[in-house]
Design a protein around this nucleic acid. Structure first.
Length: 561
RNA sequence: UGCCGGAUGGUGUAACGGUAGCACAGCAGACUCUGAAUCUGUUUGUCUAGGUUCAAAUCCUAGUCCGGCAACCA
């Protein structure tokens, strides 16, 4: 265990002083908890992590690192009905991938079941909890509504000894599921519904992913969470805004039992991103209904989806710092995330030539252009990335978008009679256009080639690929998953009706031959097109599959004068 | 019409009684063997009404609007 040094200011002075950092600064200045900062990331293993969780992960692990403390990974596995080991492994992989390390501080709330039981007994002994025989349905009426106080349960004044006996028998499995619950005895008239004798334990005969059938009673979140925090010595228990009304209960529980410390719950606003949905339930639905290929579909806002898409973890971390931390709801534009991704990939990715929509070009003066090897820069942002040879032949492909039979104003690319520069490989002048007699589609361009020394006056450079010395590749192009910025905002239509039918487009591209052997997960910039990542699942040596990470920005607009 | 929280450009945020700043997006330009990157410039903002103060995004009062809360979910 690491004991944090007593630092009274954050070692990251450049970072924005969002309210949680300010709060911690104050706590440290006041000498609270010996100047320690111990946080935790507490996922429930019932689904995959998404970019919203990344905000929480970056916050919790980031704060711990910043203040020289530590962050625990703890599974909130108190409801076996929804939880599964499948998710435990996936969550760990995602947190690691994001770049964080919990060391040996890897816990499960289920590790504390025995301790939790003991604290429940303590509460009963103090007359602060009772076994209630009201059904969930029945208690609904007793609880009352926000504007009206509730009614006390008939079980409320059950003697301590009887409560103790009943609770012990609940554990022993003498009762049916739902027959009894353990309740905190707080205040049925409280304006905060969570204080109206909340359930602490329920009977559930469900196999738990870790404790098996050892228990048939399981603690509720509100009871388990704060105590787990206290057991682990958490100093700042950071959660999302909807738990704000739970805080009085969090504090009540810790105030009435003999725990070693009383962590402070702090709430922040969860992340909302445009053109996607973020709830586990809806994400699960997208998977189950086949709208996407799985949790790791590159269109999903899940961390595994983003990993497969090719988003660098560093970009996600930068993004999470950029969006800040506040207490009010907001909707962050996807463009901000994409900006972080482009910035990172621009810095790090190797450049390659690839033609997504190939148009055949025959070089007419082929004696000059038969077969050259040109030298291409691997990454202009990083000199150490070096250069590579690229084959240039008398028959090449260019992108259809780079030729216009009738060029609009300010179109700088290839057109009949016009010239362009070929990236790293001289110049092309279009002499003749061959079209399909029936459809009128342009089939082949016949062009004259001039070497780089020719210094032909051109206003554009286009990318290309040799026809013979290139490879075929499947390229998956992605667009937003939904057609509207906030799919949950339309009361008239279900979010599934707003799914973008064109969010995935698959094309057969021609790529530099070296790309055929690229490693899964490797990301490249296809010059002038975008960033692309070798698909980790479907790509094979010799039969590569690329996922579009994000397109390059394109300031060219046809209508522009 | 109960309780809790909140409100700064199109979006995300900063300013903690003293010049409303930054980033994204947009627009315009410079540069360019990527119409990328980079650089420059620029449009747009303190929810409303009162009050305190030499001075208010910031403090006070009232209102408006938004979010959350009535699982044996987390």
């Amino acid at each position: 265990m690491t004991t944090a040094p007593t630092t009274h200011t954050s070692p990251e002075p450049g970072a924005p002083r969002h309210f949680i950092r300010q709060l911690i600064d104050q706590d440290l200045a006041a000498g609270k908890r010996d100047g320690q900062v111990i946080t935790r990331f507490p996922p429930e293993p019932n689904g995959y992590l998404h970019i919203g969780h990344a905000k929480s992960i970056c916050l919790n692990f980031g704060l711990a690192k910043e203040y020289g403390g530590r962050c625990h990974l703890r599974y909130d596995d108190t409801n076996p009905a929804a939880e599964d080991v499948e998710y435990v492994d996936a969550i760990e992989a995602d947190v690691r991938w994001l770049g964080f390390d919990w060391g040996h501080h890897h816990y499960f709330a289920s590790d504390y079941f025995e301790a939790l039981y003991g604290y429940a007994v303590e509460l009963i002994e103090k007359g602060l909890a009772y076994v209630c025989d009201l059904s969930a349905e029945a208690f609904k009426d007793y609880r009352g509504v926000p504007t009206r106080p509730g009614t006390e349960s008939p079980s409320r004044n059950r003697p301590v000894a009887e409560n103790l006996d009943l609770f012990q028998r609940m554990r022993a499995g003498e009762f049916a599921d739902g027959q009894y619950v353990l309740r905190a005895k707080i205040d049925m008239a409280s304006p905060n519904l969570h204080l109206r004798d909340p359930t602490l334990y329920r009977i559930k005969r469900i196999h738990h992913h870790r404790t098996g059938d050892q228990w048939c009673i399981y603690p509720m979140y509100d009871f388990a969470h704060g105590i787990s925090d206290a057991i682990e010595g958490i100093t700042h228990s950071i959660c999302t805004l909807e738990f704000e009304v739970h805080r009085p209960l969090y504090d009540w529980i810790l105030d009435h039992i003999s725990v070693p410390c009383h962590p402070q719950q702090i709430e922040f606003a969860r992340l909302n991103l445009t053109y996607t949905v973020m709830s586990k339930r809806r994400l699960l639905n997208l998977v189950r209904e086949g709208y996407v290929s799985g949790w790791d579909d590159p269109r999903m806002p899940t961390l595994c989806g983003m990993r497969r898409r090719g988003y660098p973890p560093a970009a996600i971390r930068t993004f999470c710092e950029t969006i800040g931390v506040t207490k009010y709801d907001s909707m962050t534009e996807m463009e901000l995330l994409e900006h972080s991704v482009r910035a990172e990939l621009n810095r790090t990715s190797l450049r390659r030539l690839a033609v997504l929509d190939p148009l055949r070009v025959v070089i007419t003066n082929s004696e000059d252009a038969e077969r050259h090897v040109v030298e291409a820069v691997n990454n202009p942002e990083d000199e150490t990335a070096g250069k590579r040879p690229v084959a240039f032949t008398s028959e090449i492909y260019i992108d259809r978008a780079d030729f216009a039979e009738e060029p609009p104003p300010k179109y700088f690319r290839l057109a009949p009679g016009k010239s362009v520069r070929l990236r790293y490989a001289g110049f092309l002048t279009c002499e003749r256009v061959e079209k399909d007699a029936v459809t009128g589609t342009v089939q082949t361009l016949y062009c004259r080639w001039d070497p780089p020394e020719a210094k032909v006056k051109v206003k554009a450079t286009i990318h290309w690929v040799s026809a013979s010395a290139s490879a075929c590749a499947e390229v998956r192009l992605y667009d937003r998953l939904f057609t509207v910025a906030d799919p949950m905002d339309d009361p008239e239509r279900d979010y599934t009706e707003l799914i973008n039918p064109d969010s995935l487009r698959v094309v057969q591209a021609r790529v530099e031959s070296a790309l055929a052997e690229a490693e899964p997960g490797e990301a490249f910039q296809f010059e002038r097109v975008g960033y692309f990542c070798v698909d980790a699942k479907d790509s094979r040596p010799g039969a590569p599959v690329f996922n579009q990470v994000v397109a390059l920005k394109d300031s060219w607009k046809p209508g522009k004068t």
